[in-house]
Lab assay of single mutants.
Amino acid sequence: KNAAQIVDEALNQGITLFVADNRLQYETSRDNIPEELLNEWKYYRQDLIDFLQQLD
């Protein structure tokens, strides 16, 4: 998997990933985040941060 796929997957589930103060953050109206997504975000944290910062 790559960062773009993970960001896309999150968006499809109503979750927006973004970077604030060099930390990976998310916004969602969901009550909870599936644990497998959280684990994936932790595992790919630096890739996601790098990818999202390139988009800014």
Rank of each mutant, 00 (worst) to 15 (best):
K1C: 04
K1W: 04
K1I: 04
K1F: 04
K1M: 15
K1S: 04
K1D: 02
K1L: 04
N2C: 13
N2E: 08
A3H: 02
A3S: 04
A3I: 10
A3C: 07
A4N: 06
A4L: 06
A4K: 14
I6F: 02
I6P: 00
V7A: 03
D8Q: 15
D8H: 15
E9F: 07
A10T: 03
A10M: 03
L11E: 06
L11N: 09
L11W: 12
L11D: 04
L11C: 13
L11S: 08
N12P: 01
N12W: 10
N12C: 12
Q13I: 10
Q13L: 15
Q13A: 13
G14I: 02
G14F: 05
I15C: 04
I15K: 00
T16I: 15
T16A: 07
L17G: 01
F18P: 02
F18W: 07
F18V: 06
F18Q: 04
V19K: 01
V19N: 02
A20R: 15
A20F: 12
A20H: 13
D21W: 06
N22W: 05
N22P: 01
N22G: 15
R23C: 14
R23Y: 10
R23K: 14
L24T: 01
L24Y: 01
L24G: 01
Y26P: 01
E27M: 14
E27P: 02
T28R: 03
T28Y: 05
T28M: 04
S29I: 10
S29P: 06
S29M: 12
R30T: 07
R30M: 10
R30Y: 06
R30C: 07
D31F: 09
D31N: 11
D31T: 12
D31V: 11
D31I: 11
N32E: 13
N32W: 13
I33K: 01
P34H: 04
P34V: 04
E36V: 09
E36G: 08
E36C: 06
L37Q: 04
L37A: 03
L37H: 02
L38T: 06
L38N: 03
L38P: 02
N39S: 11
N39Q: 13
N39I: 12
N39A: 14
E40T: 09
E40W: 04
W41Y: 05
W41C: 02
W41P: 00
W41I: 10
K42F: 14
K42A: 15
K42Y: 13
Y43C: 07
Y44F: 07
Q46W: 08
Q46F: 08
Q46I: 09
Q46T: 08
D47I: 15
D47Y: 08
I49D: 01
F51P: 00
F51S: 01
F51V: 02
F51K: 01
F51R: 02
L52D: 00
Q53R: 13
Q54A: 12
Q54H: 12
Q54N: 09
Q54Y: 10
L55S: 11
L55H: 12
L55P: 10
L55Y: 12
D56T: 13
